[in-house]
Every structure is written in structure tokens, then in C-alpha cells.
Design a binder for these strands. Sequence first.
DNA 1: GCAAATTAATGATTTATTCAAG
DNA 2: CTTGAATAAATCATTAATTTGC
Lengths: 204, 204
Amino acid sequence: MRLGNLYCDPSIANGIHKITARQRWTPSQMQLQILESIFDQGNGTPSKQKIKEITSELTQHGPISETNVYNWFQNRRARSKRKQQVHFSSNAESEVETETESPKEKKAKLDNINSHENQTSRVEDLCFQSPEVSSDGQSMDQLPNKTKCGLQSNDSSKCLNGFGHISFYENVVSNSNPRVDHLMGHMEDAGSYDPFHTGDGYDM
Amino acid sequence: MRLGNLYCDPSIANGIHKITARQRWTPSQMQLQILESIFDQGNGTPSKQKIKEITSELTQHGPISETNVYNWFQNRRARSKRKQQVHFSSNAESEVETETESPKEKKAKLDNINSHENQTSRVEDLCFQSPEVSSDGQSMDQLPNKTKCGLQSNDSSKCLNGFGHISFYENVVSNSNPRVDHLMGHMEDAGSYDPFHTGDGYDM
DNA sequence: GCAAATTAATGATTTATTCAAG
DNA sequence: CTTGAATAAATCATTAATTTGC
């Protein structure tokens, strides 16, 4: 009984036609190309920061949100894998090791260095404040045990600056930080992102 | 032992202990109670809006984020269902319609009923009034300023022991702060959110 | 009585499935 | 039919219970 997709809210049609019908994003050629390109680099699902960056970039080529980017990667990976499996359908059995094109070590959990919105802020010093500050008030830390926080603010806030050239996305993904805090669930529009999933709060 | 969100950076803790604090949220008794209660009302997965509200409320009883709430409901429902199915394993699985049911006291372990825990649990509340509460930071919990953290010393914070009555949280879902609304819309009404994921994110 | 070792719960993430817009 | 979006199932990983040895 999945009535799950009632989706559009009925109440908004205040006389006119619903302006809020479910409509879905349609990637432009350029966006697709870029996305594919990033995907092909095989860095797995981009971290939240990267998604923000990617989104920012793609915004120049048409309307898009972080959710779109996130979903795209999810679907891209899933379908890529599925297609491959079908491809081997008549073949064997035990060989499941073949990664798609995004070989990623399965269990490599060193992620979560949330530096949410860092568009213009400095990530430099975030890791050291008093531990008992949760910027949002609560929220526990979600940080990885192993890599711990430390500052690995290698990310992005910087490489983002002068994009506008085709080389940007290479930076975006190549930029270290393998699997990080992805999963942003569904954010909404406008710059802010996600609501769920991110443990929010700064690490620590 | 719960000791709140302390975190010790490895580089700081010169190789002594790993005072690594918790990485995952642990609901307090109160929070759990409230969550269960809401769950039992059988309204399915709360809408984004409600999640925010619930989170705000639960915030008064310990650190928590919307993500946690969301995840909790996800897990709660999933596991509830699974348990139910196992229950009917050999039977005619005809009806799966029966609500999400409400196993209520599945807490068989509440034998100890934290009769002593209450004073120790305060630790979480030392709260951290973070100076800069993200001017917007991560859309996550810009909680409504109700009681921020700091000691709210609500009566509710201590009625921890004899739980069996909870009435306020029923309100939580019905009123509370109307501020937020833009989260992901689930099915139900959810007031008015924005289904578009499209034309937005013009940030850059 | 404590604390390391083990087990059971359960929070968080990933993957698979489904729905429907174009 | 393709594929973006939403949800549920499966899985992982960490915390709390518990057991065990001292």
C-alpha cells in the first residue's frame, strides 16, 4: 500500500492551477555531460561539499539543485550496476567483484567532515573550537572515528573560486576526500540543502 | 555510559585515551518515549515540517537533530514491519494492512528504569550555547530559539522517571513553531512545501 | 566490584524497488 | 521507454547490555 507518491499538495491550488505539480528536473546537455564526466572519474558518490560545488557549477548551465545532483548520482550508479549485471546474466555466479566504473572500496568509512555551507566561509578553523559547541544546539557528532576530525579541509571552498572553465569538475572530484558525508537526502531549493540525513552539526 | 557529546581530537589527546565521544545519537528515555508515542499515533512518516517540530521539542530533552528523527522513524517502521512479518511467517500473509502497529513496550529492558540515571543524564544538558549559531548554516536545525539549550529546567526534564504521561508532545505535532516548512514533503498534506526541485539553487 | 570481552540493539548509510513525468 | 524522484529493504557500524574473569 504505497500511496507514497501523492506528492503534490492539493491545497495550494488557490483558484488557479496548481503551480506545484510535480515536475522533475531535466538536465541540460551540458549538465549531463559534466555529470557523466564526474561520474566517470569514479570517485563514487560525491560528498556533500562536492555536491554543493558541482551544483554551483551546473547552475550555470541551467536550473538544478543539490538534490538533483545527488539523485542523479544515486540513479546513475544503481543503473549502471544493474545494466552490467544483466550483461553478465548468463555468465557466472561467483564473480561479483567487478565494480562498475566506480570502484570504491566498500567499507572505507572515513567520511563526515561536514563543513556544510562553506561557500564563502573559511573552513580553516572549524575543527578546533570547544568541543561542546554544537552550532545548532544539539546534534551529535557524526564524525568518523578513524580519521577523526582533524582538519582536512582540503575541500573545496577554494577550488570553487575560479571555475567557469571546463576544468573545474576535474578538480571537484579529484580533490581527495573520498567518500564523505554524502547522503543529503532531499533538500529543497535554493541553496540550502538538505534537511535530513546529514547529521548536521559540526563534527565534534 | 553516556557522557554527552564530548569529543577529543586525536591530535590533541596526545595518544592517550581515546576519549572519542559518541558518534551516534542515543535517544534519552524521554525522547524515546515521545517518539514512540508519536509513532503510535500511526500517522506514518511525519512530514518535514513535523519532523522539524518534533525535533524542536525533543531538543529540550537532549541533543538531537532532524536527521535523527527522520532516521528513527524510518528504522522504527521498517523494524516494526519486519517483526510483524516474522510473526506471521507461516501464516497466510494476507493482510499487511494492519497499521504499523504499535508494539509499545518493547523495552523489555526497562527493568532498571533509570532511577539513578536522571541525574547523570544531565550531562547532556550542559549544553553548549554555541556563540555563532550558524546564521543559517546548515538548514538543519535552526531551532526556533525556544529553549535553545542551556538549562531549560522545564518540569518536563525531570519527570523523566515516572513516564507514563506525556501530553505535551501531542501538541508538538499540532502546533509549535510554524516557522519552518521547507523540508522534504512526504505524502500527506504537509501544509505547503515545495515540490520543485528544479528552478532553484541559483547560488554560485 | 570493576573492566575487558561478548552479545544484542539500533542509529546511520547504501542499495534496490517503485512511481510517474517527459 | 528513459530516468528523475521517493520509499523501503538491506546492510553496516557503534553503542548499550550482558557476561566473564579477576
